[in-house]
Amino acid sequence: MELKKTGMAGTLESSDILVVIEPKNSEGIDILLESVVIKQFGDQIRKIISNTLRELGINQVIVRANDKGALDCVIKARVQAAVSRATGSKECFWRVVES
């Protein structure tokens, strides 16, 4: 999928994560992460973000995320929502998510 614009999803409320996804000119997934639990879970959060993006075929992207202790499935949901907003596509989204 191609990112057409910046997409944002999530909030700064407790147990949530705010994810902003911007298109990038070059290959690679850059993640700028802030988290209340960065010491314990920083690496895991990054992994979930990049795995979710790869599943969706996104690999030229800058991600800015501010985590307030979100569960893995919440992180995944917010990344997917931000991508769907940035690509403007809903079509086939669930099937991609499914596989």
Partner: peptide, 15 residues
């Protein structure tokens, strides 16, 4: 509406 849909979808699949 869209973000809530993603959230419930993922919650049901993993919690």
């Amino acid at each position: 509406k869209d973000t809530a849909r993603f959230l419930v979808f993922n919650a049901l699949l993993s919690i």
